Simulated scan of single mutants.
Amino acid sequence: MNSSLPADAAVRSVKPKARQGRAAKQKILFLLIAIAPSYGGYLLFTLYPNLLSVYYSLLSWDGISAPKFVGLDNYIALFQDKYVWRALLHNLFFMAIVPISVIFVSLLLGYVLANKRYRGTPFFKVLFFFPNVLSTVVIALLWAFIYDGSFGLLNGLLRLVGIPIGTYYWLGEKKTALAAIVPPYVWGGVGLYVIIFMNAMTTIPKSLYESAVLEGAGHMTRLFRITMPLIMPLIRVSALFLVLGSLKGFEKQMILTNGGPAGSTDVIGLYIFNLAFGAEYHNYGYASAIGMFLFVILVTAKLLMDKFLPDRSVEY
């Protein structure tokens, strides 16, 4: 009987190992099943089209006739295309103004709501967030009505305060059309970041503000010396989203002006769209080459922001 004990002990030691092996396999299988839909969607709708765009950028193709391989000719034409550089300059204009405006306004409103403790704070949160509920088309059409020369709200307010503006069409004049597109972007983006910044500010210890008040610090000093350093990682991520969105967004420009008048509001994304799907052109190869160029710009912007924007908050 004693001779059988080592064999029984060996069998018992093998069973836990077998159970652990089955459990590990089941865990791996569960993880694969769980991530398969998201990764499948990413591969099918993001990675595969991007890789296909690289191939298309080497072709001369209108989407109907047989494609013709042209190598790097599309990229050579890209760097010689003055309309690409004009559109890129407009993108840089939005990138320089929209993120700073959205973050600054959102910080001010969030600071006021988080520190003043107004009775109507929940109402203001809903009010500021309301533009984010609206679709891009609705926002663009709303601002198109505001800028209308005959019945627009802006001209009506200017006439009300005694400015004889007449029937000035803000989106129809080259000198004002580009700047007129900035307010729709700011108005449509502020609400979300007000909520984000406000919720982050409520986690800051009140003792820091009380100490600053005792030392005579005003509201702007507290905002820039206490609040902003403590939520800097959040500001950095918000700036990243806004910068990349300013570089690749074109929906509002398409609805408000379609790049006009005379290309004064054209941006890279809209130029690509019109080249590929517009009424005059159907050049998928050249549009894909410009898309690859935009991809390089987006990656470069991301790397520069990682290098120059601080990624850690300050601890007091």
Score class of each variant (00 low, 15 high):
residue 252 K to G: 02
residue 205 P to T: 09
residue 199 N to T: 05
residue 227 T to W: 08
residue 186 V to D: 13
residue 189 G to Q: 14
residue 234 L to D: 05
residue 194 V to A: 09
residue 241 F to M: 02
residue 209 Y to R: 08
residue 181 I to W: 10
residue 252 K to Q: 14
residue 239 A to R: 03
residue 198 M to F: 15
residue 216 G to Y: 11
residue 228 M to C: 13
residue 251 E to H: 06
residue 235 I to N: 05
residue 226 I to Q: 05
residue 226 I to G: 05
residue 211 S to D: 14
residue 231 I to P: 01
residue 230 L to P: 01
residue 217 A to V: 13
residue 195 I to H: 01
residue 212 A to I: 09
residue 209 Y to N: 06
residue 239 A to T: 05
residue 244 L to T: 03
residue 211 S to E: 13
residue 237 V to F: 12
residue 205 P to W: 11
residue 232 M to D: 06
residue 245 G to C: 04
residue 197 F to M: 07
residue 195 I to L: 01
residue 213 V to R: 05
residue 188 G to L: 00
residue 211 S to N: 05
residue 185 Y to L: 03
residue 179 A to I: 15
residue 184 P to Y: 09
residue 181 I to T: 09
residue 240 L to G: 06
residue 179 A to T: 15
residue 249 G to N: 04
residue 230 L to V: 13
residue 195 I to T: 06
residue 196 I to C: 01
residue 193 Y to T: 04
residue 216 G to S: 10
residue 249 G to Q: 12
residue 225 R to Q: 15
residue 207 S to Y: 07
residue 227 T to F: 02
residue 245 G to A: 08
residue 196 I to L: 14
residue 189 G to K: 07
residue 253 Q to D: 08
residue 196 I to K: 13
residue 190 V to M: 12
residue 192 L to M: 11
residue 233 P to H: 15
residue 202 T to Q: 01
residue 198 M to L: 15
residue 234 L to G: 00
residue 210 E to L: 02
residue 236 R to S: 15
residue 253 Q to N: 11
residue 183 P to D: 10
residue 238 S to E: 04
residue 247 L to E: 07
residue 215 E to P: 00
residue 198 M to N: 10
residue 247 L to N: 03
residue 208 L to D: 04
residue 231 I to Q: 10
residue 197 F to W: 10
residue 220 M to C: 05
residue 227 T to D: 09
residue 205 P to Y: 08
residue 206 K to S: 10
residue 230 L to D: 09
residue 231 I to V: 15
residue 254 M to H: 14
residue 195 I to D: 00
residue 185 Y to K: 02
residue 201 M to T: 07
residue 253 Q to W: 11
residue 242 L to W: 03
residue 196 I to W: 13
residue 242 L to Q: 01
residue 184 P to E: 08
residue 204 I to S: 04
residue 244 L to N: 07
residue 189 G to H: 08
residue 248 K to P: 02
residue 209 Y to L: 02
residue 222 R to Y: 05
residue 241 F to I: 00
residue 245 G to P: 03
residue 182 V to S: 00
residue 201 M to V: 07
residue 254 M to Y: 13
residue 203 T to P: 01
residue 191 G to Y: 12
residue 222 R to M: 15
residue 219 H to V: 15
residue 208 L to N: 06
residue 228 M to L: 13
residue 236 R to T: 13
residue 253 Q to M: 11
residue 187 W to H: 09
residue 218 G to R: 11
residue 250 F to S: 09
residue 229 P to E: 08
residue 245 G to T: 08
residue 239 A to L: 11
residue 225 R to S: 12
residue 236 R to N: 12
residue 200 A to L: 07
residue 206 K to A: 05
residue 217 A to H: 03
residue 246 S to T: 15
residue 242 L to D: 02
residue 189 G to P: 10
residue 248 K to C: 02
residue 241 F to H: 01
residue 240 L to T: 03
residue 180 A to F: 06
residue 243 V to G: 15
residue 241 F to Q: 05
residue 226 I to D: 03
residue 209 Y to H: 07
residue 182 V to D: 12
residue 206 K to E: 09
residue 203 T to R: 12
residue 192 L to D: 07
residue 218 G to S: 04
residue 254 M to I: 04
residue 209 Y to A: 06
residue 192 L to A: 12
residue 194 V to R: 14
residue 223 L to D: 15
residue 186 V to I: 13
residue 238 S to K: 05
residue 218 G to Y: 09
residue 235 I to C: 03
residue 207 S to T: 05
residue 178 L to P: 03
residue 243 V to T: 12
residue 248 K to V: 08
residue 207 S to H: 09
residue 253 Q to V: 09
residue 214 L to S: 06
residue 236 R to F: 11
residue 250 F to W: 11
residue 184 P to F: 06
residue 237 V to K: 04
residue 191 G to C: 10
